[in-house]
């Protein structure tokens, strides 16, 4: 028992020195189990490749340049979609959150459109825009837009009115109130919306690539299925997980730490 505590203590100290260890360590048993199952050949090898097979395929596809290209395609599509989603969603959310008439006019429509869901649009989009970039971008923007709008509205409405009054009494005009009070006050919610939006958008992108794509990680996986290459499907799935982890811990989490948490608006 004491030994367990000692090992645990050493592990905690190690992760304090090297935080990436804390990220990677939990995957060691997962990969180990995977390797074991593959090694024992509980399933036929063509259906259940080993970690080493996937690693080889990763090297191979990277070497050929396919993987970097596809990865770039997917990430750029997501980034462009997210940028549009924010550029449309934040102003729309602020408008709906601040203006009673806009709220009454648009809120039911938003809830209705949100319910249709992202890939449920694909059939009609394919007819309108064909198999290609426009269709995929539309789906991602659509998916990112709603969580951003809905959360921005919530955020705007959660800003205490007394703060806007304080700003006005210090000489702030309408736009200054929006810029100096409403937006920063709503920021924690906006980031939550963005986090959800990116998560949904990422999944929608993969789905869209599978259905209408000619490149990208989703396409890679679907193409591999056609070729019967289980290894590449595994590879695609792992890359999806890793990419999301990177977006979350390198982009979203730092923004949250330096805004809402620092200001005491959200507790950790």
């Amino acid at each position: 028992m004491i030994l367990v505590w000692k090992i645990w203590g050493a592990y905690v100290r190690l992760t304090a020195r090297f935080p990436s260890v804390a990220t990677l360590m939990p995957f060691v048993p997962v990969v180990g189990l995977w390797a074991l199952v593959a090694h024992l050949e509980l399933f036929p090898k063509v259906f259940f490749p080993s970690p080493l097979d996937v690693w080889r395929s990763f090297i191979d596809l990277t070497w050929k340049g396919i993987l970097p290209d596809y990865l770039q395609d997917s990430v750029v599509r997501l980034a462009v979609g997210a940028a549009w989603g924010m550029a449309l969603g934040i102003p729309l959310g602020v408008l709906i959150g601040m203006n009673r008439i806009a709220y009454r006019a648009l809120w039911p429509v938003l809830l209705f459109l949100q319910a249709i869901g992202d890939i449920a649009w694909l059939p009609i989009l394919v007819i309108w825009f064909g198999y290609g970039l426009v269709t995929m971008t539309f789906v991602i923007v659509y998916t990112v837009l709603f969580p951003v709008v809905l959360n921005t509205v919530l955020g705007v409405r959660s800003v205490p009115p007394v703060l806007a009054r304080a700003a006005q009494s210090l000489g702030a005009g309408r736009w200054s109130v929006v810029w100096e009070v409403i937006l920063p006050g709503a920021l924690p919610n906006i980031i939550t919306g963005l986090r959800n939006g990116l998560g949904y958008g990422w999944r929608a992108l993969i789905a869209a690539e599978i259905i209408v794509g000619t490149s990208g990680i989703g396409f890679l996986m679907f193409d591999a299925r056609r070729a019967g290459s289980v290894v590449e499907i595994f590879l695609g799935m792992i890359i999806l997980g890793i990419l999301w982890y990177i977006v979350d811990s390198w982009v979203l989490a730092p923004i949250e730490r330096t805004t809402g948490q620092r200001w005491g608006l959200v507790t950790r």
């Binding site: 205490p160 007394v162 703060l163 009054r165 304080a166 700003a167 009494s169 210090l170 100096e180 009070v181 920063p184 006050g185 920021l187 805004t259 200001w263 005491g264 608006l265």
Partner: peptide, 13 residues
């Protein structure tokens, strides 16, 4: 007309 509020109303950010 400057105002001091009971709830302080400082900008948290």
């Amino acid at each position: 007309r400057g105002v001091v509020f009971q709830s302080f109303a400082l900008f948290p950010w």
